[in-house]
Structure formats: structure tokens, C-alpha cells
Amino acid sequence: MSEAENNQLHAYLPILRGYKLLKFCYFILVVSLYSCGDTKTDKTTEVQSTETSIETVETLPVKSKTILCFGDSITAGYGLDDTNDAYPALLQHTIDSLQLDFTVINSGVSGETSAGGKSRIDWVIKQAPTVFLLELGANDGLRGVPLTETRANLQAIIDVVKNKSPKSIIVLAGMELPPNMGLEYTTEFRKLFADLAAKNNIAFIPFILKDVGGIASLNQRDGIHPNVAGHKLVADTVWEVLQPLVL
């Protein structure tokens, strides 16, 4: 090879190297794009799988009927370590065992009076329950609230339910007071609930603490609020009235 040809070859070497480098970069680019395409496909598949899972969850059957327990500390399960031991939760267990289409809602507030219930009923009744269980009045009696006031408040609650949720079945839970409140007051207090139930033609539980009230072994230390065993009996008492309404 002549010196001139050798010099010409050396002149083209950088161009050849550049061409080889360009081909190598092009190869890397193609591989990268291909990999990105696979990743995109995988992500799309993952999103589709997630959407399918969500759709499956949304199509699960939801209970359409409700039983709303509107009350005081007895309904709320005051003093229990677990509110799942309170009678509303026990009612739910019974209902589930019978595979009935009902959800029990615990709307109990400890210390609630009939006046307090009257003040919050407009908001609570927006849930339009299938069954509305009214359990209030005990705190009125223990505080010596005039019976005319308790009666008026309970009637006002019943009226709101009838007007704003006319399809709701109303159940009134009766209450009794300990004898130290005086014979006349306790007698009239007991009668108040029976009169309201008859006047409004609604289902009636004569005494929600039947076989529990005044029995030390079935109540907490305060002698007023049922313990776990007591709530089981309360649930049985309530179920006797609820059962024909939900079956």
C-alpha cells in the first residue's frame, strides 16, 4: 500500500468509528423502546386487573333493610368492654344466623333524655330505617322530669318518624323505675309508655329490662346498666317483638 493510500485510510477511520458507534446507539435505543413497551403493557394489565377486582367488590350484595335502635345508655352498651356485647349487636347475630336482609344500627347515646332524642331525631331519621326502635325515657324518670314533658318529647319523636319516614315500622320500648322514685310517679311512668303505644298504634315492648332490672347478677356495679349476661336477655326480650316484624 502506497503512502498516499495509507494516509487516505487513516482519514476515513474516524468516520468508520463514528458509524459503528451510531449503529450501537441505535441498537440500544431499539432495545430500550421495546422494553418500555413491555413495561407499559404490564402496567396496563395491572390496572385492568385492579379495575376488575373493584367491580367484583361493588357487585357484592348489600343489605337493604335496617333496624335503627334509637336510645340511651342501654342501647349504647354503656360500661361494656366491647359494644358488640350490647343488645343491638346481639340482635344482628340472631338476624345473620337466620340469613335475613337486615342491618342493625346502634344509635344509642349514653345519658340521653327524651329531650335530647327529640333534638337529634330530624338528623337520624334521614336514614329512613325499615324498623325504628325507640328506647328513651329512663334518664327522664331517674331525674324526676315531669311526666307531661317526657310524654310530649316521645310523642314528638314518633311524629317526626311518621312524617319523615312514613314507611318505617315503629317499636316503642317501655321502661320502669326503681320503687325509691315514689309509687305514684313510678306507676304513672310505666303507664306512659303503654298509653303512647296504644295511641299511636305501634309495636310495644312493655319492659325492655324484663328479667334483668333489679337483679344484681345481671347488672353492672351501678345496679342500673346490664352486664354481658343481662344484654343477652335484653336482646331476647326485644327479639320477641321484632321477630314477627322482620320475618
Rank of each mutant, 00 (worst) to 15 (best):
D159Y: 08
L147A: 15
S114E: 13
P166T: 00
K167W: 01
N227T: 06
G111T: 04
G137A: 12
L177C: 07
E149D: 15
V161H: 01
G116W: 02
V160S: 07
R120S: 02
Q155C: 11
L142A: 09
G214I: 01
G111M: 05
A229D: 14
P178K: 04
M175A: 03
V161S: 10
P226N: 01
I121E: 04
L218S: 02
S217L: 07
G116H: 09
A138Q: 15
I157S: 10
D236Q: 04
S110Q: 03
G108I: 06
E176P: 00
A128E: 15
L142M: 15
Q127C: 15
N219Q: 08
A156T: 11
K167L: 06
K191G: 10
P179D: 09
F193L: 15
E184T: 15
P206C: 05
S165G: 06
G213N: 01
L196V: 05
R120P: 09
G213V: 06
H225L: 08
L147F: 12
V212E: 09
P146L: 00
V161I: 14
N201C: 05
A156P: 02
L177T: 07
P179L: 10
Q155W: 05
H231Y: 12
S119A: 14
L172P: 04
G213D: 02
L136R: 12
T186D: 06
G214S: 04
E176T: 13
M181G: 08
V212Q: 05
K162Q: 12
V160L: 04
